[in-house]
Every structure is written in C-alpha cells, then in structure tokens.
C-alpha cells in the first residue's frame, strides 16, 4: 500500500437541476490510487454527479475537496473531465487540437502523484492515431475522435480523472487500451471517478451505487419553493 496523501472527499452533496432535486446528502471519500465506479439506473444522476465534481453544476449544499492537493486550486482545476462530448475542433489538425489543450489547461502536480507530461506526438502514437497528427480532425472517425479526446488527459498531468461512460464509441481493443491507461493512472497515484454501464476491470475499485429514494422522503421544501 502506498501512503495516501491525496484524497477526494465529497460531503453531503445535494444538487437541484431545473427545480428538481437530483440527489441529496451524498458523501464519499476516495483515496489515492483507487477508482470509484458510479453505477445506477439511467437518469439517476450519475452524469450529474460527475459534472458536479467537475464544478460544472453548482451545489445546493455540501462540499467537495481534494485533500493533499494544491491548496490554491479548486478541486475541479486539478481534474480532467472526460465526458460525452469530445471537445474536438474539426477545423484544427489533430496535433493542434491536442497542443492547445496541453498549453491551455493548467497542469497540477502534487505530492504522491507521479503522472508525467507526455509529448503530444508520443501520446497520439500510443493511442494509435499518430498517423493522423497533421490531418484536420474533421477526418477522424467517432472512435478516433474519442481517442484524441482521451489523449488530452495524458498530455497534462492532473491527479483526478472524471470519466463519464469512458468506453462508449470504443471497440474491444481500444477498450483494453483504455483500461491499461486508467490502471497506469491509478498506479502513478491518481484517482478516477467513473460512471459506467459496463464492467471495468481496474486494479482498485470502490463502487457507489445510486438508488432511488423512498418517494416520501424526496423533494424538500426548498426544491418546490
């Protein structure tokens, strides 16, 4: 066991979206080197949870913090979000897309996390799209775009990866490669929170199962106004 410096702690998270309570009083803590797999039925709020951790959805109550992380940065600024959208600009070349994210997103290095800054070309080669580096991203297939989006996580080291259905649009071989990358990230001291339908074979997994509450307890006064 590694000494656990980094710890992602969520306390009493409560989220309202569109006047409806998505979930309330959700707490968990995730220590370095482990992955949290969020499961649950469709529409239960898995994506909302990930977007909340990414700081994109505002909290109605609760706190999120990254213990042992950089103190002057918010937790979401030390996290990569790998969601349904690829954030790939078809008008830019593959390399330009990737270089932009490498330069634009702030790297976050903290004690105990040994993720390195890899060169864009190397990452593209590893993910099997090196030959497309100078082509406009418009020519990429859906799976290739997905891989380009994934390579963004490797060129800027950040300890927390938030991955929403990471295996979608990937074939079996790429999925294996993705799992390898995710395991490497865990091994270098990173944390992963992922929402998924498929079984993911990762080294250290904790699961968080989102379940419907008893209808009598739902939607408190505030949500109804």
């Amino acid at each position: 066991m590694r000494s656990s410096h980094l710890k992602l702690i969520a306390e009493n998270l409560t989220i309202d979206r569109g006047g409806r309570r998505v979930f309330q009083d959700l707490s968990f803590s995730l220590s370095q080197g482990s992955a949290l797999v969020v499961t649950g039925a469709n529409g239960i709020g898995k994506s909302s949870l990930l977007r909340t951790l990414a700081g994109l959805v505002s909290l109605a109550a609760g706190t999120i913090r990254l213990e042992g992380g950089e103190t002057d940065r918010l937790p979401q600024e030390q996290a990569h979000y790998f969601g349904h959208q690829d954030a790939v600009k078809p008008a830019l070349s593959v390399l330009e897309n990737l270089r932009f994210w490498q330069n634009f997103a702030a790297a976050s290095v903290c004690e105990g996390f040994t993720g390195a800054t890899l060169s864009p070309l190397l990452v593209l080669d590893t993910l099997g799209i090196g030959h497309t580096a100078h082509l406009p991203a418009a020519y990429l297939s859906a799976g290739q775009k997905r891989r380009l989006s994934l390579s963004r996580l490797l060129v800027t080291p950040r300890p927390v990866w938030l991955m929403d259905e990471p295996t979608s649009a990937l074939d079996k071989a790429s999925e294996q490669q993705l799992l390898g990358i995710m395991n490497d990230h865990l091994a270098s001291g990173g944390l992963i929170v992922t929402a998924t339908h498929t079984e993911l074979v990762l080294d250290r997994i904790e699961t968080l199962h989102l379940q419907a509450a008893d209808p009598a307890e739902q939607a408190p006064e505030e949500a109804l106004l």
Binding site: R51, A54, L74, Y81, D86, A87, F104, A105, A106
Partner: peptide, 13 residues
C-alpha cells in the same frame, strides 16, 4: 456545443 466550454471552465485559468 462540442463540450469545449466545460473544459475551459475547468482549465484553471
């Protein structure tokens, strides 16, 4: 539309 804005919000800039 392509999710870039989400990532910009998280970029730490």
């Amino acid at each position: 539309e392509d999710g870039t804005l989400d990532l910009m919000l998280m970029a730490g800039r």
